[in-house]
């Protein structure tokens, strides 16, 4: 009984942590531009596919991972420079549609470069599960959770202790005043896309040994990551983490205890319920109208 519960919990935490990492990317870009970047899932895919190619070239795992994250970050920066920045005076909705277009383009390009097949990435350490209370825990899950914690700590430090991070937060609150205070908001926008791509890429490499990787792997992960960000409150990084874990664990518990047929439905019902009661999400800034 306990073993069963633990197994569902491990599955939920593994999946939830990946939703959280993808959700973080949504939050960061939303913060600096109020744009929902629907190409976030494609960052996950590009990093995974790049790792496969680099490993096939015979590079050792750590170097392959590093280069793959760099490639993904570069794609994020290019996306901002070539697609978002030229249209920065357009409305938010237009920018969001641009990111949807970019996601379709990136997926198509990946099919041309890497083909439609799925590929596996070897786990960072061993593949043998660790038995905890009768439930199997994959070492890769431990890696994912550890990496997520490190990233949370890193982001906290970046946003609270560095000038650039504070400049990003300031831009999120009020771009106009920030610009008047001498913050280069154009640079901040680039930086947020780079950072979001880096996070998405890291998520992609962390989960590739579990989920495998293929050109459309980012579609559903992107959608679930978006849900995580919304549930936790768009723009709040800690909210995205909590949202991801809630969605992941509730999916696993539903599949385990109720019926796998209702798995996705229950996750979405929780999101709807939360948004009806707290429209800004669990940790979102409470919107107050000033008159």
């Amino acid at each position: 009984m306990l073993a069963e519960f633990l197994q569902f919990l491990f599955s939920g935490v593994t999946v939830g942590a990946t939703y959280a990492l993808v959700g973080l990317g949504f939050s960061i870009i939303y913060n600096s531009s109020h744009v929902i970047n629907f190409a976030q899932g494609e960052f996950v895919m590009i990093a995974g596919m790049s790792t496969v190619s680099l490993l096939a070239l015979g590079l050792p795992m750590p170097i392959a991972i590093l280069i793959a994250v760099m490639i993904t970050t570069a794609v994020g920066l290019l996306l901002e420079k070539l697609a978002v920045e030229p249209a920065r005076d357009a409305s938010i909705v237009t920018l969001i549609i641009i990111t949807i277009g970019a996601s379709i383009f990136l997926r198509g390009a990946a099919e041309v470069i890497w083909g439609r097949d799925f590929h596996s990435v070897p786990p960072f350490t061993t593949n043998d599960p660790i038995l905890v209370g009768g439930a199997a825990l994959l070492p890769q899950t431990v890696w994912i959770v550890l990496a997520t914690l490190v990233i949370i700590a890193g982001l906290w430090w970046f946003f609270n202790r560095t000038l650039t991070g504070k400049a990003m937060l300031a831009t999120a609150y009020n771009p106009m005043v920030s610009r008047l205070m001498g913050i280069n908001t154009k640079f901040i926008l680039s930086l947020s896309f780079g950072l979001a791509a880096m996070l998405g890429g890291t998520a992609g490499i962390l989960i590739a040994p579990i989920s495998l990787t293929y050109p459309s792997v980012g579609v559903m992960l992107g959608l679930k990551g978006f849900c995580a960000a919304i549930l936790g409150g768009l723009g709040n990084p800690m909210g995205a983490i909590a949202g991801g874990l809630i969605v992941g664990v509730s999916e696993a518990m539903t599949a385990g205890y109720i019926s796998s047929a209702y798995k996705d439905a229950v996750a979405f019902i929780i999101i709807l319920a939360v948004l009806i009661v707290i429209p800004s999400g669990l940790f979102g800034a409470r919107g107050t109208e000033r008159v």
């Binding site: 197994q7 569902f8 491990f10 599955s11 939920g12 593994t14 999946v15 990946t18 199997a136 989960i207 579990i210 989920s211 459309s216 792997v217 579609v219 559903m220 992960l221 696993a252 518990m253 599949a255 385990g256 796998s260 798995k263 996705d264």
Partner: peptide, 9 residues
């Protein structure tokens, strides 16, 4: 579901 990454439950 489509795109699911873990079927252990």
């Amino acid at each position: 579901g489509k795109g699911d990454t873990d079927m252990t439950p």
